[in-house]
């Protein structure tokens, strides 16, 4: 794996990634952590809203929609295969 991190909102649909760190603080961070988005968590980008945003992600067995503002705080390491 290369070391280049991408924010979650740029993870292409259908691709997997692994959470490396969160660049948010405060209650936003808390909320993201509560979704289970801790370091090492695998996330799959599922589909985009027809209006372009938010995007639905598969996180720990649940499907969660995040706006690009939130997703951009989640720095991911892209994974090629599961």
């Amino acid at each position: 794996m290369n070391d280049r991190l991408i924010p979650l909102n740029l993870l292409p649909l259908g691709q997997f990634g692994r959470v490396r760190r969160l660049s948010a603080g405060g209650s936003k961070r808390r909320r993201l952590l509560d979704l289970g988005l801790i370091q090492g968590t695998q996330v799959e980008a599922l589909c985009k809203s027809p209006s372009g945003d938010p995007t639905a992600y598969q996180i720990r067995g649940a499907v969660i929609a995040l706006r690009s503002e939130e997703a951009s705080c989640i720095m991911m390491e892209a994974l090629k295969e599961e």
Binding site: S27, K28, R31, L32, L35, P54, A56, A62, V63, I64, A65, L66, R67, E69, E70
Partner: peptide
């Protein structure tokens, strides 16, 4: 707008 997450059950 504040942060928001929505679950799609």
């Amino acid at each position: 707008p504040s942060s928001f997450t929505l679950e799609l059950p």
